[in-house]
Simulated assay, not measured.
Amino acid sequence: MTKIIDNTLLDKVSAEAKESPRLRMNYNFHTSLDAKAQCLLNAVEPGTKVVIHRHMHTDETFVVLRGRLNAFIYNNDKSIQIKKEINPLKGVYGYNIPKGVWHTIEVLEPNTVLMEVKDGPYTPITPDDILM
């Protein structure tokens, strides 16, 4: 079934994120965690905590559909290598993060929604993939 990505869908997922204790909510377009491509909306609210992490099996690409955030890329010693505001109203739309690169986000605006794409199948982050 086709899906329209419009304000109605973004508002729905944002409302669910606001009600979530994690202050974020996914809306998956892929039909299975085993799918070869993982494509999803990720509605995120200010205050959500995204640990510094990496994906060892895939690049991750995200595009901000609305809202804004800071994206951080880290060195192995936990020092910030890059900090970049992602704001489509300023012509900065997203990021492609190569596999194995440490990263996180800081949400700056309510109702922020990203579209994320990664290779599948879904692989949970392990403790080795979290930078403490």
Score class of each variant (00 low, 15 high):
residue 69 L to M: 12
residue 8 T to H: 11
residue 13 V to M: 13
residue 31 T to V: 05
residue 46 P to S: 12
residue 46 P to L: 13
residue 114 L to G: 03
residue 32 S to D: 15
residue 53 H to K: 06
residue 111 N to V: 01
residue 128 D to A: 07
residue 114 L to C: 08
residue 2 T to C: 00
residue 72 F to L: 15
residue 72 F to C: 08
residue 8 T to W: 03
residue 8 T to N: 14
residue 124 P to A: 10
residue 69 L to E: 06
residue 106 E to D: 15
residue 71 A to W: 06
residue 26 N to W: 12
residue 16 E to Y: 01
residue 32 S to W: 07
residue 56 M to P: 01
residue 49 K to G: 00
residue 55 H to D: 01
residue 99 K to I: 01
residue 59 D to Y: 12
residue 82 I to M: 15
residue 124 P to T: 04
residue 24 R to G: 08
residue 131 L to T: 07
residue 107 V to M: 04
residue 109 E to F: 08
residue 70 N to M: 14
residue 64 V to S: 10
residue 65 L to H: 12
residue 2 T to Y: 05
residue 18 K to C: 04
residue 23 L to W: 02
residue 25 M to T: 02
residue 61 T to G: 13
residue 33 L to N: 12
residue 81 Q to E: 14
residue 39 C to D: 11
residue 38 Q to C: 00
residue 123 T to S: 13
residue 15 A to P: 00
residue 49 K to W: 03
residue 9 L to T: 04
residue 94 G to R: 09
residue 123 T to G: 07
residue 13 V to Y: 14
residue 107 V to L: 04
residue 116 E to Q: 05
residue 122 Y to T: 06
residue 77 D to G: 06
residue 5 I to E: 10
residue 88 P to H: 08
residue 104 T to K: 12
residue 101 V to P: 05
residue 40 L to K: 10
residue 4 I to K: 15
residue 111 N to A: 10
residue 16 E to M: 08
residue 65 L to Y: 10
residue 92 V to T: 13
residue 122 Y to I: 11
residue 129 D to V: 08
residue 91 G to M: 00
residue 39 C to L: 15
residue 20 S to H: 09
residue 11 D to H: 12
residue 38 Q to D: 03
residue 19 E to H: 06
residue 43 A to N: 02
residue 80 I to H: 06
residue 102 W to E: 01
residue 32 S to C: 07
residue 66 R to M: 03
residue 75 N to S: 05
residue 126 T to K: 15
residue 120 G to I: 04
residue 92 V to R: 05
residue 78 K to Y: 03
residue 32 S to H: 09
residue 131 L to R: 08
residue 112 T to R: 11
residue 129 D to H: 10
residue 15 A to C: 03
residue 96 N to G: 00
residue 72 F to G: 05
residue 77 D to C: 05
residue 90 K to P: 00
residue 122 Y to R: 03
residue 97 I to Q: 06
residue 64 V to Y: 11
residue 53 H to V: 02
residue 113 V to C: 13
residue 92 V to S: 04
residue 64 V to I: 15
